[in-house]
């Protein structure tokens, strides 16, 4: 396993956000995590990326317990416009994570240019993020993560705030990138179709206090297509299966009735 989450729990003060999560992600696997708003998906990714310390349990990345931001993992935040630094050009934003890596300047630049080319932004290196559309900003954030050369890429609802067309493009981009670099991807989404379209496996979470409701294998062919994959009966069947779980998702504790606000 590339990533192993064991009995992970996280409370904010006395409020339990994540009750008990156990699941694994194999090397080069694409796992989507779906769950109701406020069930702790962002919290989970922050624990996996070492930004938050779990209250209980562990996350083990490539054999090492996570206890701070790991060098082999990159996180793409949901709020891309706040995650990109407006005072830096696109290129400087992508160069940012390479500053801690101790590479020479030429190598840093090569990596940054390569990742920008990968996401189709080679011509926008000297633009500022705020001059770009939302979809392009998210591409910059993805390029920045790729330049870091992670083994595992975590993405928090990365396509939630772009239009449908851009969203489809970005979904296919991330599938291409994953194939190209052979990285492991864990992507959080609240969109069931998106989860089934992208994933090898879908981890469905319950409402708070959060547990794993079920893990569903998505045995669709590997090269997916926005039209043919989505119209196949297997796709419809799988999305129905996930949807039923989400609708029926019950809290792990019966006395917790409040559902947190969406982030």
């Amino acid at each position: 396993m590339m990533l192993e989450v064991t009995n992970l729990a996280k409370s904010y003060g006395d409020v339990p956000a994540i009750a008990d999560l156990t699941f694994g992600v194999a090397a080069q696997e694409f796992v989507c995590i779906v769950g109701p708003s406020g069930c702790g998906k962002t919290t989970l990714l922050k624990c996996l990326s070492g930004l938050l310390e779990p209250s209980r349990g562990t996350a083990v990345l490539d054999g090492t317990t996570v206890d701070g931001p790991p060098e082999t993992l990159a996180l793409v935040f949901q709020e891309y416009s706040r995650s990109l630094l407006p005072w830096k050009t696109v290129l400087d934003n992508v160069l940012l994570p390479l500053r801690a890596k101790g590479l020479d300047k030429a190598e840093q630049r090569r990596l940054a240019m390569e990742s920008l080319a990968e996401v189709g932004l080679a011509d926008f290196t000297h633009a500022y993020p705020w001059q770009l559309s939302g979809g392009m900003q998210q591409r910059v954030a993805i390029a920045r993560a790729l330049a870091y050369q992670p083994k595992v890429l975590l993405m928090d609802e990365p396509f939630a705030s772009v239009d449908a067309q851009t969203r489809a493009e970005l979904e296919d981009l991330i599938l291409k990138v994953r194939r190209h670099f052979g990285i492991t991807v864990v992507l959080v989404t609240h969109d069931i179709d998106e989860a089934v379209y992208l994933a090898d496996r879908v981890v469905v979470l319950t409402k708070r206090p959060t547990k794993v409701a079920e893990v569903i294998d998505i045995d669709l062919p590997d090269d997916r297509d926005q039209v043919t994959t989505r119209e196949s009966p297997e796709f419809a069947h799988l999305r129905g299966q996930v949807a039923r779980l989400i609708v029926g998702a019950q809290p792990g504790d019966a006395d917790t009735t409040n559902v947190g606000v969406a982030s």
Binding site: K46, S49, G50, L51, P69, E71, A74, L75, F77, S83, L96, P97, R99, A100, K101, Y148
Partner: peptide, 8 residues
């Protein structure tokens, strides 16, 4: 958080 997650 972004900067921190990239090990700066």
């Amino acid at each position: 958080d972004t900067a921190r997650s990239y090990g700066l």
